[in-house]
């Protein structure tokens, strides 16, 4: 629910109805973004760890962090953007925070997250 029922109508129209990306905080993901070069479309992949999700509805964003040439790089994507073609989860991790900003202060081995086995987690829930 947003501030006004009429705003909901506008925002609902912007939501993805199918293929809404499913992932959790701490997941290592490959984000496939559509990029228009001239009039040719190609897919660019940005892979890294999801360290935050913010906002709600059509304003929901997620932050992906990776290390490029020893330099931390973060990109924020709108979840419902039509430019996001696919978010594939390659690895899940056990995390105890909704925001993994502490990873920014860590380098090297310390940035590793404890892996969570998908099937084990599912079994534990049921």
């Amino acid at each position: 629910m947003s501030a006004h029922p009429l705003l909901d109508i506008v925002e609902k129209a912007c939501l993805k109805t199918e293929d809404v990306p499913q992932f959790d905080i701490g997941d290592t993901v490959n984000v496939h973004t559509r990029i228009l070069e001239g009039n040719k479309e190609r897919i660019q992949v940005f892979s890294g760890v999801v360290i935050a999700r913010s906002g709600s509805g059509c304003k929901e964003m997620f932050t992906v962090r990776r290390i490029v040439n020893n330099e931390g790089v973060e990109r924020k994507f709108p979840i419902h953007s039509p430019r996001i073609a696919l978010v594939e989860v390659t690895r899940s991790a056990v995390v105890r925070r909704a925001k993994l900003y502490y990873l920014r202060d860590r380098v090297g081995k310390a940035t590793r997250l404890r892996e969570r086995r998908r099937d084990v987690a599912k079994g534990a829930k049921s």
């Binding site: 947003s2 501030a3 006004h4 705003l7 506008v10 925002e11 129209a13 912007c14 559509r34 228009l36 059509c58 304003k59 709108p78 419902h80 953007s81 039509p82 430019r83």
Partner: peptide, 10 residues
Amino acid sequence: GMTQVFDESG
């Protein structure tokens, strides 16, 4: 009120 939408280019 204000919100945001995606245009045709995304």
